[in-house]
Design a protein around this nucleic acid. Structure first.
Lengths: 223, 223
DNA sequence: ACGATGACTCATACGATGTACGAGTCATCG
DNA sequence: CGATGACTCGTACATCGTATGAGTCATCGT
């Protein structure tokens, strides 16, 4: 009965000097290639067969390193969310700027890989996501948010960022769709949002920033 | 070349007194049955074959009324979002209570059908979603939100609600997963969110309400 | 020195899915 | 009565995820 790879296993000491062909399969290489494929072809473009092709391997070889396709999705999502923040996390003067930076980076990371937004609705709590939550919690705590309110604050910000990212990503793909939808508004029943040109407003970044400011004002009013 | 059903067509005048068997295929019946199936079996449970079975029809018959499976998803999502608000929309005293009610109802509607959250990351702007956006815009406008800020306000609230709903729905399915994840936190690197028991906090409704209050405070400070 | 072990790869095959194609039914109307 | 068009559906196909089990090869205990 094969072990099916659970944890890290012992590696051969000498990597045997790869014969310059394919650099050997590994979970990391699989995930990296999956991200490439997702970036290039979108969610439906990721296929175990295509993935294996890009890796120069047989399809079933993937399953030694990965449980199933869901696994690939989860790993790809988390890998895209690695946070390379400013090194001086400790003892920053301006906690609010820190929080804003973290959340804008979070959103930007996901928008760089638009498929990642569609993957969020799964229970995905990889190490990188948890790290970001931890950092956020630490910043808020340091900012004086009471322990009793900490979870509410974290979730509120997370929710806002996730919602904004998903909305932005899904509207990004369809420029004419949006124009068409706005057209449909003209018909009759939507006077308010038709007048405000809700579906044509393109300042996503500004809107994100403004909404975030409002939320932060509520969570911890500026002195 | 078949017309493939674009708009409404002329119906036979006498419905011919259904022979008590299956009540004839229609787009509405298809959507309603799809919602049933989704409620019962989840996202992956919806299959054109299963759908046809439940309807007592052949698989390909569905394609007369519907373009493809994506269509079914879009229609199911929008159908679940129909808003039956309070009749006295006009001239309410307390705009803030109106907004809160609308958004809580929105969230509740989606949580009643947890699969709907997973469908959000598509560009889905059915008539019911647009109606809700219109109502929201009207309420905010009446509340004195400046026209220049209206879109920001609408999107901020939308984003918050969507994020909260998706988060809630995805954590709902996995009670032990959450415990397991919280366990994983104990390991080492996540002291803050481990201490605050972020992943075990179950007061989703309260957290939603609090965060919403904060956001509304920012958008239109109480007098 | 050699057989066993275990890490890893892969070809084949299976069942399920979305849907293209085209033939079939039946009421209506000129 | 023949044509039209609304609607149904059986068959077929390409594609997918993955179960199964056989193959390769380095390592290690003896």
């Amino acid at each position: 009965m094969a072990a099916k790879r659970s944890g890290a296993r012992s590696k051969p000491l000498q990597p045997v000097q790869e014969p310059r062909s394919e650099p050997a399969l590994s979970r990391e290489r699989i995930v990296a290639t999956a991200v490439e494929l997702l970036d290039a072809q979108g969610l439906d473009g990721l296929t175990m067969r295509r993935l294996a092709d890009r890796l120069g391997s047989g399809v079933m070889s993937l399953y030694w390193h990965v449980n199933n396709k869901e696994d690939v999705f989860d790993l790809a999502l988390d890998s895209v969310l690695e946070y390379r923040g400013p090194p001086q996390i400790v003892e920053s003067q301006d906690w609010r700027a820190d929080v804003v930076h973290m959340l804008e980076d979070w959103r930007a990371s996901m928008l760089r890989h638009p498929w990642s937004a569609s993957l969020l609705p799964r229970r995905a709590l990889g190490p990188n996501i948890l790290s970001r939550l931890e950092l956020l919690g630490k910043a808020l705590s340091k900012a004086g948010v009471a322990d009793t309110d900490l979870n509410v604050a974290i979730w509120s910000l997370w929710n806002y960022v996730m919602g904004a990212t998903i909305t932005r990503a899904s509207f990004d793909l369809s420029d004419d769709d949006r124009a068409a939808a706005q057209q449909r508004l003209t018909s009759e029943r939507y006077p308010t949002i038709e007048r405000s040109r809700l579906l044509l407003d393109n300042d996503w970044d500004g809107a994100f920033r403004k909404g975030l400011d409002f939320l932060l004002d509520g969570l911890a009013p500026r002195e």
